[in-house]
Design a binder for these strands. Structure first.
Length: 428
RNA sequence: GGAGAGAUGGCUGAGUGGUCGAAAGCGGCUGCCUGCUAAGCAGUUGUAGCCCGCAAGGGCUACCAUGGGUUCGAAUCCCUUUCUCUCCGCCA
């Protein structure tokens, strides 16, 4: 959520930023109009309340007869105030609704663009391997090796679900443990294990609600929502807290499954395991002081890249443009692993395995995440960041396709072997 | 799941209709004092919003888990929800 004061004090700045992400400048004027009406009603009601309060105080000392005569009058005044308050509350709700619906302003570094074609490739690392045979897509490799069972996934849970089996399941588990270990031991993050279901208010905190409810699963009877990413529970860990400056920055890493309805992407990426309703992810989340969030993002990105480098799979870093950035993010780098056959007949593609974002105070304001810059100073909102490190299915795809051999076997990347009983090869 | 108890400021804890934004203690901060180290004395100390003022500062409003209700007036009475604790049941 954007600061309402920004609308009051720098409306043109807000309009300019919103224009870049396709939000009509008129929105700013509408918000300001609502805000002014709320404040006018509030000032009016407060003045009347002050009068009534002192009249009520006098009643305490008044004689019973005096009370009788004044009672009706005071009651009428109270009713008048209540109706002012009711009006104000309604406009305030409308204002709040509008504010919750407005995306974050883009960081000054974000290139202006319409969609993902306008994203800019920051760097490409590694060279795609050249094959002396036609590389197969992961679903063929996996099914032939008996480590991926798409059909039975569909049988037990429906489309966009799959089953990993034997070395496939072990490979994923090895990846999770290995990635956690890198971030914990090498990059200094604190591991957290969180619930995989959260309350509705957490999703408001990160910005998934109210706008993106149709991509979330939730229990119909309880206030339980399946997490679409560990970002949600971990960012909300310190919700409604006032942190000391010395506690920052906080660096967390968490493994969770992620649940997404993928309603909007019906028909996209239907082959293989690229896009499912359930997938696993290791996620890094940071809370820091505003002045260090730019630097923290670069570090976060490097921490995620470190995983790609260690896997020795070519990848590229993409700076996401204004038209493609997500609702809550101010700036996002995507990390894409090379997959030589992921598009089947059409060949290679770059698979998005990580999104590293700085949300600045956008989520912090929604989730009420504050810190005290100095002892005695006024509390301020922290900045929040997060980045995948990394998303499992697509890493699995990249490993299967990049490390495949002509006989259909798959070589296990060297860094993962200690996590797989020193196994070197996955064979049928 | 059943029965009961509870939720007050940074913490402990008093407060059952008006003088309560809330006693007291602890903690924090400021000053004073003392050669027996940490104590004594005094003062001060919640959050947010709005308004006035160049400022220092001042005023008003709201907040005693949450949301409603009763009342001229609610921390206090009634109801809802959430959470915590105790006992019972069930259980990896």
């Amino acid at each position: 959520m954007l600061d309402i004061r920004l609308f009051r004090e720098q409306p043109d700045f807000v309009k300019e930023g919103l224009l870049k992400i396709g939000v009509a400048p008129a929105t700013v004027d509408e918000v300001r109009g609502l805000d002014e009406r709320v404040r006018a009603l509030k000032t009016d009601a407060e003045a009347k309340k002050a009068q009534l309060n002192s009249a009520n105080k006098a009643m305490g000392k008044a004689s019973p007869e005096e009370r009788e005569t004044k009672r009706a009058e005071l009651r009428a005044e109270g009713d008048a105030i209540n109706s002012l308050d009711a009006q104000r509350a309604e406009i305030e709700r409308e204002l709040q609704k509008r504010l919750l619906d407005i995306p974050n302003l883009p960081h000054e570094k974000v290139p202006v663009g319409k969609d993902e074609h306008d994203n800019s490739v920051v760097r490409t690392v590694g060279t795609p391997r050249s094959f002396d045979f036609t590389p197969r897509p992961h679903w063929e490799i996996g099914e032939k090796l008996g480590i991926l069972d798409l059909e039975r996934g569909v049988k037990i849970s429906g489309s966009r679900f799959y089953v990993l089996r034997g070395a496939g399941a072990a490979l994923q588990r090895a990846l999770i443990t290995w990635m956690l270990d890198i971030h914990i031991e090498k990059h200094g993050y604190t591991e957290v294990y969180t619930p995989f279901v959260v309350k509705e208010e957490c999703l408001y905190g990160t910005g998934n609600l109210p706008k993106f409810a149709d991509n979330l699963y939730h229990d119909v009877e309880e206030d339980f929502w399946l997490v679409p990413t560990a970002e949600v529970p971990v960012t909300n860990l310190h919700r409604d807290e006032l942190l000391e400056a010395s506690a920052l920055p906080l660096h967390y890493v968490a493994y969770t499954p992620c649940f997404r309805r993928e309603k909007m992407s019906a028909g996209r990426d239907v082959r293989g395991i690229k896009r499912g309703h359930q997938f696993d992810k290791v996620e890094m989340v940071k809370l820091c002081a505003p002045e260090s969030s730019d630097a923290e993002l670069e570090l976060l990105l490097d921490n995620a890249e470190d995983v790609c480098r260690a896997l020795e799979i070519p990848y590229r870093v993409v700076l996401v443009c204004t038209g493609d950035k997500t609702f809550s993010s101010a700036i996002t780098y995507d990390l894409e692993l090379y997959a030589p056959a992921s598009k089947g007949e059409e060949g290679a593609e770059w698979l998005e395995v990580s999104s590293c974002s700085n949300f600045r105070d956008f989520q912090a304001r929604r989730a009420n995440l504050r810190y005290r810059p100095e002892p005695g100073a006024k509390p301020e909102f922290v900045h929040t960041l997060n980045g995948s490190g990394l998303a499992l299915p697509r890493v699995m795809i990249a490993i299967l396709e990049n490390y495949q051999n002509s006989d259909g076997s798959v070589t296990i990347p060297p860094v993962l072997r200690p996590y797989m009983h020193n196994r070197v090869l996955i064979t049928a």
